[in-house]
Each structure stands twice: as structure tokens, then as C-alpha cells.
């Protein structure tokens, strides 16, 4: 597999960027997305460099989940450009990926965590973790199992390796889903409201795992309703409203001193 970074474009001509910056992991440019006549995203851009934690906040229907799902083409952009690790995803005119192998390779480098966990119910937790490494990435089984067991221990689920997902609590399932994404050794993680489907008392254990990942310098884009958490872990926060970026910046500035009335109102309403 060629190193995707070989195809990296120079970014030195971009204004406002210090020259020896960290590599770009994810760049979204002018992203638009319509469902029929409803335009959900109206030209959104973001950049996540290696080690960045970009938190995306906004009300329901603001387009934040759609934006995240466009990054790995679970939704097909109507316009715009997605660049992962310096490699631009080739798109057809309808926004669908032009090269199946390219999009599969790029998806393998992005670990996605869903609101509803989406573990495979017919496989044990361990089997969930090694499925893609063994059957898609060609990792030797013993090696994948060792990696999976280490990851399960890390998220506190070592004793659940042989259990089926349906017998775990929501918080345990989500921790397992995070471990499953990590087991592919992704370049970056995408979190789509990872705690929104959880009972309040189970939110903390999942946030602890994500906080741990942020602390070790993982690149991630995190769509969330947890404002306190976003402020704590994010290096950059984006406030999305009606499909446009209303305001963005470092967490302390955004949460401590919001500029736009909409963001002030939003922060007041979420508490």
C-alpha cells in the first residue's frame, strides 16, 4: 500500500499557517450537502492536523452529523473537497466516490464511532474487534487478537471479550465500539455524538475513554452535545448553525467569550 502522505500537497501557500506545521490529517473544503431541495450544509470547511481534537457543536438539524459523515463518504457531498492525509478523495459529479479502492483505503484510516454503537450482533466483542484487521487488512490472526485484547483491557472490557454485544450495557458497547475502531490503527477518529444514546450514568465512562485518547495525542473530530467535555478536550471548536460555521476558535474563547448572538443563545439553552 503506498503511503498516502506521498501525495500530500504543499500547504505553505495557505495564509496564516506557520511553515513547519504538523501534517494535516483531515481537511474539508467548501462542503455542501443537499437532501433533495433541503440544503443541510452550505459551504463548510475545517482542518484537523495530527493531534488536533476538533469538536463540532450545534443544535439538532445544524448539519454537524452530516458533515462528519461526509468526511468518510457515508454521505456523498453535493460539492466541495475532502482531503485525508494529503490525499484528495476522487469524486464523481454526483458526489459519490469515483474510486472504490481509494475510498475503502481512506475509510480504513478513519475510525468511526456511531451514536448507536453499531457493533455486529452476531459476533463476540473480540470478533468485532478483529473482523476488519483480519479479513480486510490482512493482519495475522494472533497479532490481531493480541492487539484487540490489549485494547479491550485499556477500555476496561477485558472480561467481556467472549460476550455478545446484546449482553453489554450501552456504555460498555460504546467502549467496545471505540476499541473496534482503534483496532484498525486509524490515522484519525470520527465520533458522531458518541454519548447521545446513553443513559446519563453511563456517559462518564465513555467520555473517560475519549479523554484518554485525546490525552495521548490522537487526532479526532468529535460531534457532541457535551459542552463541558468539548471545552475540556478540544483544541478547536466549531459552532455550526443552519449548515454554516457561525463561529469557531479555541475552546476557551468560544465558550468563555462567544461573539455571535446565536452562539450565546445556544450556549445558554444547553446549559
Amino acid at each position: 500500500m503506498p503511503d498516502p502522505r506521498d501525495a500530500r500537497e504543499t500547504v505553505t501557500d495557505m495564509p496564516g499557517q506557520a511553515a513547519p506545521a504538523r501534517d494535516e490529517a483531515i481537511r474539508v473544503e467548501g462542503l455542501r450537502k443537499s437532501f433533495g431541495r433541503l440544503e443541510v450544509l452550505k459551504g463548510v470547511s475545517l482542518t484537523a492536523r495530527e493531534g488536533d481534537v476538533v469538536a463540532v457543536i450545534g443544535g439538532s438539524g445544524s448539519g454537524k452529523s452530516t458533515m462528519l459523515r461526509c468526511i468518510n463518504f457515508l454521505e456523498h457531498p453535493s460539492a466541495g473537497r475532502i482531503v485525508i492525509g494529503g490525499e484528495t478523495v476522487a469524486m464523481k459529479s454526483d458526489g459519490s466516490p469515483a474510486d472504490r479502492r481509494q475510498i475503502e483505503r481512506i475509510r480504513q484510516s478513519l475510525g468511526m464511532v456511531f451514536q448507536q454503537f453499531n457493533l455486529w450482533t452476531h459476533r463476540t466483542i473480540l470478533e468485532n474487534l478483529i473482523e476488519v484487521p483480519v479479513h480486510v487488512l490482512g493482519v495475522p490472526r494472533a497479532e490481531a487478537v493480541a492487539r484487540a485484547e490489549a485494547l479491550l483491557a485499556r477500555v476496561g472490557l477485558a472480561e467481556k471479550a467472549q460476550s455478545y454485544p446484546a449482553f453489554l450495557s450501552g456504555g460498555q458497547q460504546q467502549r467496545a465500539a471505540i476499541a473496534r475502531a482503534l483496532c484498525m490503527a486509524p490515522r484519525a477518529m470520527l465520533f458522531d455524538e458518541p454519548t447521545s444514546a446513553l443513559d446519563p450514568e453511563l456517559v462518564g465512562e465513555v467520555l473517560a475513554v475519549i479523554r484518554d485518547l485525546a490525552a495521548e495525542g490522537r487526532t479526532m473530530v468529535l460531534v457532541t452535545h457535551e459542552m463541558k467535555f468539548a471545552r475540556e478536550v478540544a483544541s478547536h471548536v466549531i459552532y455550526l448553525h443552519n449548515g454554516v460555521i457561525e463561529e469557531e476558535g479555541p475552546p476557551d474563547a468560544l465558550f468563555g467569550n462567544p461573539q455571535s448572538d446565536r452562539l450565546k443563545q445556544f450556549l445558554k439553552s444547553v446549559g
Binding site: I103, R105, I106, H135, V136
Partner: peptide
């Protein structure tokens, strides 16, 4: 089949044939 489980496989870059067979 719960659509999320198919989506999870797609999001991990599983090719269509393997996805049909294994998921």
C-alpha cells in the same frame, strides 16, 4: 438487517462482497 451494522462495515472500508458475506 439493522442498517447501522452495515454502515459500520462500510465505514471501516469493507469491500462490498466481503460485507455481504461476513455481515
Amino acid at each position: 438487517v439493522p442498517v447501522g451494522q452495515i454502515e459500520a462495515a462500510r465505514a471501516m472500508g469493507m469491500p462490498p462482497g466481503l460485507l455481504a458475506r461476513r455481515v
